[in-house]
């Protein structure tokens, strides 16, 4: 124990909660990926020194209260419309850092149009996409990203393609749009993936300063409440099943397409 006292001194701290996170207790279920991603965004904001220049747009869904946890200015958007808020905010204040934070119901279902068009215009924003294959807040209904066979409260016998269509790979769709510069799929289920994800988020923010297009970061996540699994088991289930359908890693790391390449068609 004497040892512990020697170790646990201020000067020996190698990791602590960033000050950009508030002291509020998060309302998320134990083990929910949202908390980890919030932390990473906050750490990136701290490291880049942009707390006074960052505006977050929160969605409707479990992360509607994201503004209670990251100590920056926030707008709480209408369901699915965060990219529209972000578009105007960034265009009117081009020197600020603007990011949207949305779940799969918000971004891929009701807000699919806003998502695609913001990416297609190449808005200089960072879009954070939490894909846990389910509507968490409303109690575990099917999302566009729900895997086939996955049981949810609106697919009690498992998602069926004839009835419900195919699980939507939003990130692949977005990667095919010329306005995006950086599109990646990450996760936060273990220490290594957390570190990788943080790098990705940081890159997404740095791209804003370079004004090279939209950065889109999917974080394949768990919703242990909706999935009805303990957090550790949910992570394992995600690795086994979600990663197979939603492969991890960068899909695109470039700049938005060169506008000059497009003018030739009417020349």
């Amino acid at each position: 124990m004497a040892d512990l006292e020697k170790i646990m001194k201020e000067e020996n701290i190698v990791y602590k909660k960033t000050k950009v996170l508030t002291d509020n207790v998060m309302h998320y279920c134990p083990g929910c990926s949202h908390g980890v991603v919030h932390k990473l965004i906050a750490e990136v904001i701290e490291e880049l020194g942009i707390q006074d220049k960052t505006i977050g747009i929160s969605p409707v869904g479990c992360s509607v209260f994201a503004y209670n946890y990251i100590d920056i200015d926030w707008q709480e958007a209408a369901h699915g419309r965060a990219p529209a808020n972000a578009t105007a905010t960034k265009r009117l204040m081009p020197d600020k850092f603007v990011f949207s934070y949305q779940g799969d119901g918000d971004l891929a279902s009701i807000g699919a149009a806003e998502t695609l068009h913001a990416c297609n215009r190449g808005e200089n924003i960072t879009m954070i996409f939490i894909n846990n294959a389910m509507y968490g807040m409303t109690g575990g209904q099917m999302a566009p990203t729900t895997l086939v066979g996955m049981k949810t409260s609106t697919t009690p016998y498992g998602r069926n393609i004839d009835l419900n269509g195919y699980p939507m790979k939003m990130t692949e769709i977005v990667a095919s749009l010329p306005g995006t510069c950086y599109v990646t799929r990450q996760s936060v289920h273990d220490a290594a993936s957390v570190k990788r994800c943080k790098k990705a988020i940081k890159k997404g923010f740095e791209n804003q300063a370079k004004k090279i297009g939209t950065s889109f970061i999917e974080i394949t996540s768990t919703c242990n409440s909706g999935w009805k699994m303990p957090p550790v088991e949910a992570n394992k289930w995600m690795e086994k099943h979600m990663f197979a359908y939603y492969p991890q890693g960068d899909l695109k790391d470039a700049e938005r397409d060169n506008p000059d390449d497009y003018i030739k068609y009417i020349k």
Binding site: D3, L4, K6, I7, M8, K9, N12, I13, V14, Y15, K16, K17, T18, L21, V25, M26, Y28, P30, G31, C32, S33, H34, G35, V36, K39, V188, H189, D190, A191, V194, K195
Partner: peptide, 27 residues
Amino acid sequence: DPDSCIGCANCALVCPDSVITVYKTKI
């Protein structure tokens, strides 16, 4: 098992609620 901790911070990295502070030193 406090003796076994190597201060790698893996625990703190994955903690969704950011409630872990990690210390590390040479003894």
